[in-house]
Design a protein around this nucleic acid. Structure first.
Length: 380
DNA sequence: AATACGGGGCT
DNA sequence: AGCCCAGTATT
């Protein structure tokens, strides 16, 4: 038996004995498979599962997803991260519904034309839903192949990616491509895990190059590490002075293109990139910022506020950024002049006025949710 | 080829 | 604190 056929046979038989029962595995419905694959990009099964269930419940078919508005889709995606996935998912649903007559594309090339679908996802959908012979290459596949075949190429290089892709395509079982693809990924997720894999019970051990050469901990080789930069954020939460949350209004801002959290909502913010401003005085800094933006202030800004509450510093870790955020809640008085100030702020910074309670109903970054949770447990 | 883009879990 | 996760799009 060749090493290649040994590999394919062993992982498929391992799969039949060890596979998890996952809701997107008992179907060939391309919509459900597509949805699961988008959710699972850079995301663990355990984290993605509840989101998959929610989406299927809200949008049983691609048409219903297409008819939703983007804020609703982002609301359901809230907390999962990489929000372009949700926006692309929605855009692709509209494309399928409007331009493809509601029929899901049925081959690799057409599937890859969907926004948010790259090599991996196109291979996954076309093999799982349409039995096309397209080998998937995801993080699991890199690890399993690198170890078993002893491939020491850098998986972050263009050349390395190409080599793994060709190897994967050579190994795929042409009779049952879907099962083969599921097998190698499940094997990587459960058996050939990144740290401390239990090679003692591995059915591939006797022919595994990395095991033989003691390279398990070294492979796969990943040269480029992501650089994490700091961001210091000072959030200004403008609220009206009404007593109850029902009447209280707050100014929010929908985040725009070219930055994190596009399409989600937060508040007016003053930011520093490299290092935070020492002794940041919120009212003073706000005034400086407003004047810089051509704001014509008739009054000393301090007279406009009934109260100011300063939060603790929230440290929020993203994969590529460390965020340090502080929130200043500014209660604006309910007088004619102060209302005018409120309206100018709204217009100048494209803010939206909503009831405080409505904050629950709009999509927000986890950082903002943490702050709101902190507020309700410490102040009210 | 390099960088941006989230959040959570595990070591 | 670092690494990884059923990666993709943009520059």
């Amino acid at each position: 038996m060749t090493k290649n056929s040994f590999f394919a046979q062993k992982i498929i038989s391992w799969y039949h004995q060890n596979k998890r029962d996952l809701p997107w595995r008992d179907t060939q419905n391309p919509y459900k498979i597509w949805l699961s694959e988008i959710i699972l990009q850079q995301t663990r099964v355990a984290q993605g599962m509840p989101y998959y269930e929610k989406f299927i419940e809200h949008f049983p078919t691609v048409q219903e997803l297409a008819m939703a508005d983007e804020q609703t889709v982002l609301m359901l995606w809230q907390g999962l991260g990489y929000y372009s996935r949700a926006r692309n998912l929605h855009a692709a649903a509209k494309y399928i519904s409007d331009d493809l007559n509601g029929t899901f594309p049925n081959n690799y090339t057409e599937i890859k034309k969907l926004k948010g679908v790259g090599d991996y996802t196109a291979a996954a959908i076309s093999s799982f839903a349409f039995d096309e012979v397209q080998a998937v290459v995801d993080g699991n596949v890199y690890r399993v192949l690198a170890r078993f075949f002893g491939v020491e190429k850098d998986i972050t290089s263009t050349e390395g990616k190409k080599e793994f892709r060709e190897l994967a395509q050579k190994l795929i079982n042409k009779k049952e491509p879907a099962i083969y693809n599921q097998s190698i990924m499940e094997f990587g997720a459960l058996q050939c895990v990144p740290k401390n894999p239990n090679c003692k019970v591995c059915p591939l051990q006797q022919k595994c190059t990395a095991f033989e050469k003691n390279l398990i901990e070294k492979l796969p080789i990943k040269e480029k590490k992501t650089v994490v930069k700091d961001r210091f954020m000072h959030y200004f939460v403008f609220v009206t002075e009404n007593k109850t949350n029902t009447e209280k209004k707050v100014l929010i801002r929908q985040r725009q293109e070219g930055d994190i959290w596009q399409g989600l909502n937060d508040f007016f913010v003053i930011e520093f990139l490299n290092k935070d401003k020492k002794n940041f005085e919120p009212i003073k800094e706000l005034q400086i910022q407003l004047e810089k933006d051509g704001f014509n202030l008739e009054l000393k800004i301090t007279t406009k506020f009934k109260s100011i509450h300063e939060s603790i510093i929230f440290k929020h870790q993203l994969s590529h950024r460390t965020l340090y955020a502080k929130f200043y809640t500014l209660e604006i008085k309910n007088t004619k002049e102060q209302n005018e100030f409120w309206n100018k702020l709204k217009k100048k910074y494209n803010l939206e006025e909503i009831n405080w309670q409505k904050l629950d109903k709009i999509p927000k970054p986890v950082l903002i949710t943490k702050y709101l949770d902190y507020l309700s447990s410490h102040l009210f």
